[in-house]
Simulated scan of single mutants.
Amino acid sequence: MSEIPPIPPERRRGRAAATNRTNRFERFVTEAVDDGWEREEALPPLRTEVTEERPRSAVTRNSSPDVGFDRSVNPYRGCEHGCIYCFARPSHAYLGLSPGLDFETKLIARPDIPEVLARDLSRKGYRPAVLAIGTNTDPYQPVERDRGIMRRVLEVLREFRHPVSVVTKGALIERDVDILSEMAGMGLARVGISVTTLDPATARAMEPRVPGPARRLRAIRVLSEAGVPVRVMASPVVPALTDHELEAILAAGAGAGAVAASAIVLRLPREVAGLFRDWVEEAYPDRAARIMSRVRELHGGRDYDPAFGQRKTGQGEWARLLRMRFEVALRRTGLSEEMTPLRTDLFRVPPRAGDQLSLF
């Protein structure tokens, strides 16, 4: 286990991280110690806290060759789903918070994002391209049920006729099937649903506050029947833990109506590596060494190799065999690796009150 003592299980029930590891920018490490004074009461369980942020811009740009988009929107920072492997955890460090339990419990909502997005899209010279949502933290995590920020974002995109690609594990996406269906009918929307495992116990351990696998498959069905193109995402593939389920996940996704599939191997950037090691040693002590050995085999002997072109696929014989299995599974299920491109030619800046209307 880590040199950092884990927080008692009773305080972190329903959470994946075992510690609140100090982020990489801090000079000092804080640690709770027994000062010799007896305490009569136990510390309370960790609760989810939500604060608000007023962003100056909504659209985040990236130039990574490993992703199929150059812009995204994040309605929230942090994610209560608490997936232990989440590659977005290190982003909490920029806020002076821990990528560990802080990431799961100290959330930042961005309620003005829809209005700021409308302003960004209205700027002179803006050129539309697919806007990705859910690529950092999940827009349909539990807090969205009360906040409704994601729905308002979709309303803005519908008004502008702007293409959007949504990735989520949250069944709450079914609430917005009316907007997504309308946009999909115009070739403006598609969805990716992440199904990491079909085993409820494994899912509960890795993703403690995510709807179970069966519930996510139901969301695929609901969206598909409403005419929304859905990709089933077997990501991340955790070697020696979930890799044997790859074919079954794709078959289940196809059976629920998905039209495409993808699979990305586990990657553990920055603080995620230590958090994941702590978790796997506690949750699966009998196979922890084997899992981490396979992870390092995939990434050139390290917990993570950030090199473009191989960080999402891994390297070596095991990665090659996984790719072959994926391709065979695609053929058997009839799923595609690619989805129909979304349209950008319908984009328009809607008229506002007081605007002069066009004569044509």
Rank of each mutant, 00 (worst) to 15 (best):
D303K: 09
G170N: 10
Y126N: 00
R89T: 12
G78L: 00
R323H: 13
V238W: 14
D303I: 10
G314C: 11
G134I: 01
V230H: 10
R71H: 04
D243P: 02
F360R: 13
S224Y: 13
G96N: 05
P306K: 14
I173R: 06
R352P: 00
P285A: 06
L188R: 04
R11N: 04
R123A: 12
L357G: 04
E52A: 12
V238E: 04
S224M: 11
G170R: 08
G68K: 07
D303C: 09
R147M: 05
A93W: 04
N23W: 12
V265Y: 06
G192R: 08
A329I: 06
A263Q: 12
T105W: 01
S194D: 03
L223K: 09
I108L: 14
A58W: 07
L43A: 15
E338T: 13
S194H: 05
P111H: 08
R145K: 10
E281D: 08
R123Q: 07
A260K: 07
A254V: 11
E207Q: 06
R216S: 04
R123L: 05
R21H: 05
L198W: 09
R331M: 11
G68N: 08
L298Y: 12
G78S: 01
T344R: 14
P55A: 10
S165V: 06
Y140P: 00
F25I: 04
R127P: 00
G14E: 02
P239F: 15
G100K: 08
D243R: 08
P213F: 12
S57N: 08
C86Q: 12
P128A: 01
T202E: 12
A353E: 08
L268S: 09
P90A: 11
E297Y: 12
V73R: 05
V259N: 09
M150Q: 03
F360Y: 07
M339Q: 14
F103A: 12
E297A: 11
G309L: 08
F276H: 07
Y126P: 00
A283H: 07
A248K: 13
T344Y: 05
P211E: 02
G274D: 15
T340P: 00
H244F: 15
R11E: 04
E281L: 07
L97C: 03
P163Y: 03
D345A: 06
S224C: 09
K106A: 07
R175L: 03
P8D: 13
E225N: 12
T333G: 10
N23T: 03
S235C: 15
S165Y: 12
S224L: 15
S235L: 10
D146K: 14
T340V: 08
V177F: 02
W37G: 04
A42T: 07
T19I: 14
P211L: 03
T51S: 07
V295Y: 11
C79F: 03
V33I: 11
L250C: 14
E49D: 13
A18D: 01
S64K: 08
A189V: 04
R311G: 06
T168D: 10
F160V: 02
R145M: 00
K169Y: 03
T333M: 09
E52G: 01
A283G: 10
T333Y: 07
P208M: 09
V210I: 05
R204H: 08
P90I: 09
R151T: 00
R77Q: 06
